[in-house]
Write a protein that binds this DNA or RNA. Structure first.
Lengths: 152, 152
DNA sequence: ATATAGGGTTCGGATTCCGAACGTAGCCTC
DNA sequence: GAGGCTACGTTCGGAATCCGAACCCTATAT
């Protein structure tokens, strides 16, 4: 199998991975969540080559994660890339990566602190059972075939 | 900046992304969580080339996500790759991807159902404020510089 | 009309990926 | 004790991808 074929897999991890799984896309999204919208700003803040940035942004737009739209600056009309609802829903993915990175790859302490605007507390991810409410770890759960697999 | 330099960024998203951000690593980890341990089984279940698999597994071992260890089969000694504690802690990352994939990329329904072994319920990720306990979305939180950034 | 800025595209060269072929270390069988 | 098989890689050349630099196009702004 070529890597490109991963996107066709009937697997809800493989398909997002095919879209997000390259060295740039995740940091592009990080910037998008931090408020960056313009091509130039992505480019200069990341140092990515313009051709690759163009291609990646295009892919994200095509996938529906970003929306490209013109907007009026003080002086002129520009384009900007904004997260769609679908894109905003990637927030837990980024948060999960960040929590893991903070725990295992930040020798000098977490470079960012996340703040809940409402109360100033710190949001954290919890994997909780929707039935019993207990916190669940990797060892406490198992995977079973679901409806999408039977449809094959 | 070359893509390889991303790993040096002082950012808890960029560093994990540099390790996990390629087309194969995430699906390799998916297989590891689903119980696959042997080189041959990774290779045949994914169709990845042996050279790349070897390189990826080596990187994950070096990073501390997997541990390579010999073990005694019924007949002989083999090697296997197992998730370390650090690797098991990637579970939320995979779950976040899966939830997103189920929502947006599974036209025929989720291919997998996750089951809490304890009660049979379905574990889901929640981003909750550790102070007020409210559920938090992308728009309800903001990023501030943390200790690791000041140490620069 | 000329200059500047934003947002790309094009183009070679460098890097990475890939599949197929080969290497090797145990065991098992004859 | 000579093959054979299995598990686990490594090596190799060609194909795909990445990269930076240079160029292009459209709007203002002067």
């Amino acid at each position: 199998m070529r890597a490109a074929d991963i996107a066709e897999e009937r697997c809800s991890i493989a398909r997002p991975a095919a879209l997000l799984g390259d060295r740039w896309t995740l940091v592009i999204l990080r910037q998008a969540f931090s408020g960056i919208k313009r091509f130039e700003d992505f480019q200069s803040s990341l140092g990515i080559s313009r051709s690759l940035l163009s291609e990646r942004l295009g892919k994200l737009v095509e996938a529906g994660v970003l929306r490209r739209e013109p907007y009026k600056d003080a002086v002129r009309t520009r384009d900007r890339y904004r997260l769609t609802e679908m894109g905003l829903d990637l927030y837990p993915v980024l948060m999960a990566l960040r929590e893991w990175g903070d725990r295992y790859m930040a020798e000098e302490g977490p470079p960012l602190r996340i703040r809940h605007k409402g109360c100033g507390g710190e949001p954290t991810l919890e994997l909780r059972c929707s039935k019993c409410g207990d916190q669940v770890g990797a060892r406490d759960s198992e995977a079973l075939p679901g409806p999408g697999l039977k449809a094959a």
